[in-house]
């Protein structure tokens, strides 16, 4: 196992451990409440909160397309952000050409944003 890989593993090992610890923190809390808290199920307690009225119908219906539009836009721009990270670490060494290439990329995306804006995708109805 190479030294660099070893060290990388050593660093991110804490993340793995952290996940386990975080899981156990939540889990023990939930177990503790099971032990400590009273538990007396009643029909009324199981009803959904609806301002004191009985629920009109199920809440998990299909939701207007507005929310999904933002999700799609986000994916686009987040991918760009991912590209920015490696570029950012190296563009000074790579020189002006690398900068302008990225600028072009940003401009293209910016044009995309402008298009979405103009089309009213950013307008909430």
């Amino acid at each position: 196992m190479g030294e660099s890989l070893h060290s990388l593993f050593g660093d991110y090992l804490a993340v793995l451990l952290g996940t386990v610890i975080g899981f156990f923190l939540v889990f023990t809390a939930l177990v503790a409440t099971r032990v400590l808290a009273p538990f007396s199920p009643e029909r009324e307690k199981g009803t959904t909160y609806e301002c004191g009225m009985l629920p009109l119908r199920r809440a998990s219906t299909n939701i207007g397309v507005r929310f999904y539009l933002y999700a799609i836009l986000f994916v686009l721009f987040d991918v760009e952000a991912v590209f920015l990270f490696p570029w950012m670490l190296s563009f000074v060494e790579l020189g002006a050409a690398a900068y302008y290439q990225m600028l072009l990329f940003i401009l293209v995306l910016g044009a995309g944003l402008a298009y979405a804006w103009k089309k009213g995708a950013l307008q909430w109805r």
Binding site: E50, C51, G52, M53, L56, R57, A59, T61, N62, I63, G64, V65
Partner: peptide, 16 residues
């Protein structure tokens, strides 16, 4: 109905 978006009814009150 699977793909049609429906009007969501929101009850505000009496305990809101």
């Amino acid at each position: 109905q699977e793909f049609e978006t429906r009007e969501l009814l929101i009850n505000m009150g009496p305990q809101h």
